[in-house]
Amino acid sequence: MSLVSLRLQKEIKMDTPAVDSQRVDRNRPLIRISDFDFSYGDKQALFDINMDIAEHKVTAFIGPSGCGKSTLLRCLNRMNDLIESARINRGKVEVNGVDIYDERVDATELRKRIGMVFQKSNPFPKSIYENVIYGLRIQGIKKKSQLDETVERCLKGAALWEEVKDRLDTSGLSLSGGQQQRLCIARAMAVGPEVLLMDEPCSALDPVATAKIEELIHELKNDYTIVIVTHNMQQAARVSDQTAFFYMGNLIEMNATDQIFMSPDKEQTEAYISGRFG
């Protein structure tokens, strides 16, 4: 953890004296969201979110459609910067003690540290090889051996290597839906993030492909901190360590996944999980 935080601080070029205290504070979460209010124009989408996301854990966001899961997820790597009307009204998001909305933070550097996989798989219309190394190419890395190594490592990491190793130069779009999504995961891994944000990564996939991705998430947990948005309760129960339930822009409840699914504190959570609304 201290190594990661050091790296993050170096990348984001922040000078904080907090490094030592971090090394001591072993229980400190990787991501801390505090008093966070967010709106699109006049429409407030998130209300007073407080949340800790632990390192090397899978955190699931659940809740009915439109409750702000994707919005919060996209706030974690500042993808919402790209939306014209997006405003943060209050609060902050800290990653390893660094406020990512600090004006000194370079959002592009942040996004290299906090990768994202989207609901609709979106490989580039380039070869599989080029897809994986895109993040390195744009950093100007040209060394063939390094690129080759990255491709193999990331495709293996995304459990796709065996299926595509003989056709790395075919288009990423020629893969099946599930393979495309794993390619997107490999592509996100290639830039070496600590965190992977996944927004309903399986919603367009069949059960077999979904099972593969879930299996993959289990393995990725060793190296990455994962935040996953899902509409599938079973999936949340299967893959996540902690679960957060949102409703209309509010974080209703967050707890260990077992706890949430076995004996939720809040009535609303119980109702949602048991399928009585939403």
Partner: peptide, 27 residues
């Protein structure tokens, strides 16, 4: 060009100009 293509590029740490150059103009 689908927004997803741009999003994917941004999420990999590309700047806007890089995204346009590599993922908008060619397509």
């Amino acid at each position: 060009i689908p927004q997803g293509m741009r999003d994917a590029s941004f999420a990999l740490g590309a700047t806007q100009w890089t995204t346009i150059r590599t993922n908008v103009l060619p397509y």
